[in-house]
Amino acid sequence: MIRKLSYSLSLFLAVCLLSGPSRASDSDYQQAMKALGSNDFANALHYLESAVTDDPDNLRYASEYRQAAIKSKEFDRALSFFEKLSAAKPQSANLHLNFGFAYVDKIPVAGSITQVILANKALNEFTRAVELQPNWINLYTRGMSYLFWPKIFNRAPMGVADLEKAMKVQSPGPKKNYYVKTYLALGDGYWKTDQLEKARAVWQEGLKQFPDNQQLKTRLERQGDDLQKAIEANFDPNKRVDTDLRDLWTSSQN
């Protein structure tokens, strides 16, 4: 009960933190959006860095910053920025989360060994975020991150553990559209740990909650090699993972 309450509180806090600009950083954010509108990435990155520095827990600013960095291929600049800021603000879970995502953002353009190094560094940042704030987004993110590791490294069980916790966080509260991701990921985690029945049960439960979700339907329709292809297509290190967090503030409740 206490644990449930603490999850709910942390979720509430996270939502509050991303729910809206409220400080001087807002002006920088608005300037950045204007610059982005005209593909002026240099200015957009500059203003977003100011906004994140001023309000490091703001998920929205940091997420927009990373998306701008992806578009302008400024991966190293983003990493350097988050590294310095998270060192200065080590208690900001959202900063660690975005730092981790900045590593993930660089993976598709990196060599195969560097991909492993980046993925491992991302995992370290996600772990720090979970330690500071075990809310839905941090648990879901780290859980998914574990699932990307090839089976030989045996990290999928840790992913399943995180995703089961994320499921517990989301279960009591009001339903959000993005909660479907947990059903997909947890099912994939069960599949990756050879628990096909549990995987199908989670996907089926997800489909009850989100009857229009095509990815859940596809997983439930397929078997064997076809199912493997459908799942593994989502874990290709050479494909860009969508790390845009805007769902968190644009998603409507069902």
Partner: peptide, 12 residues
């Protein structure tokens, strides 16, 4: 046994 898991610490 595979050597691959042993290389991970070397790389990371």
């Amino acid at each position: 046994e595979s050597y691959v898991p042993l290389i991970l610490p070397v790389i990371t």
